[in-house]
């Protein structure tokens, strides 16, 4: 395939993805409402991710506190470990890490589930029964991920800070009172809101990409594997690239960029 055809094909795929996402969003609000499916997905994406997100958050906060303490100790500013860990976590690490963890767990599962349904004609069966597969399969997943992700981001931020606090105070010997005082002084509620807003975008995109790739899977079992792999790669890259732009564009309250 020539370079120009490859580029045209990618542009066409992006356009197709846009229409797919629009159909998923618009059909969620049409009758019949799929509220019970939405709750099932919320449980799968949110509730079933609690443990893995908590575990990742604890150790991310812990290692970040330890590395920050090593660096700050060189210039005698160990008291800044608290705000440094907290700001990095709630604004950057929490949304990005949560996005990546949920992509690996739920985004990949969405691509695999829909991919298997596609290659075994289950999606065709829905369509032939007069049921919109987008409304039945995609809309609940996309909406559930959009709501679950920011909540998981908040949880990641809280648990990550707890992990950082434990390591900074018990392992590195930072004074607990100073840790908390500095954290309160430098932190702003907008830092939390900023991270959670990123979570909304990441949740929406990882579910949309996972569903899109699975929905369009072809060529049997190998195609399902490719769809799942593509979903993880595309979602990961999208989250990392989008994170920069969201950091610049999203409101940060009284803090200057």
């Amino acid at each position: 395939m020539s370079a120009s055809r490859a580029i045209l094909s990618k542009i066409s795929e992006i356009g197709d993805f846009g229409l797919f996402v629009w159909a998923a969003v618009s059909q969620f609000f049409r009758k019949p409402h799929r509220f019970s499916l939405f709750i099932d997905e919320l449980e799968f994406i949110g509730n079933q991710s609690l443990f893995i997100v908590s575990l990742t958050a604890t150790f991310s906060g812990a290692v970040f506190a330890y590395q920050s303490w090593l660096a700050f100790a060189m210039v005698g500013t160990e008291s800044l470990v608290g705000p440094s860990v907290a700001l990095s976590l709630v604004r950057e690490l929490a949304p990005v890490m949560t996005g990546l963890v949920v992509t690996g767990r739920a985004g990949a599962a969405m691509a695999a589930q829909l991919g298997i349904m596609r290659v075994t004609e289950q999606i065709d069966a829905l369509e032939v029964m007069g049921i919109s597969p987008i409304q039945y399969l995609v809309s609940p997943r996309v909406l559930a991920a959009t709501i679950a992700l920011p909540l998981l981001v908040a949880l990641f931020g809280l648990i990550g800070n707890l992990g950082g606090y434990i390591v900074a105070t018990y392992v590195c010997g930072v004074d607990p009172g100073i840790y908390v005082q500095k954290l309160k002084f430098y932190m702003d509620p907008w830092d939390f809101y900023h991270g959670m807003m990123k979570g909304v975008f990441f949740g929406f995109l990882l579910a949309a990409i996972g569903c899109y790739k699975g929905y369009h899977a072809k060529n049997g079992v190998a195609g399902v594997g490719k769809a799942t792999n593509d979903a993880v790669v595309y979602s990961t890259v999208t989250i990392l690239v989008l994170d920069y732009f969201l950091s610049v564009l999203l409101p940060t309250g009284n803090r200057t960029q």
Binding site: T120, E121, Q122, A125, E127, V128
Partner: peptide, 30 residues
């Protein structure tokens, strides 16, 4: 189109049963 399709009954080559549902729920689905 969906209303018209509800007047069709289709048997797929691979049966296309919903693998997350029991036999009863598959038949009850439509």
């Amino acid at each position: 189109l969906n209303s018209l399709r509800r007047r069709f009954g289709m048997l797929f080559q691979g049966a296309a049963l919903f693998d997350s549902l029991t036999v009863f729920d598959n038949v009850a689905f439509p």
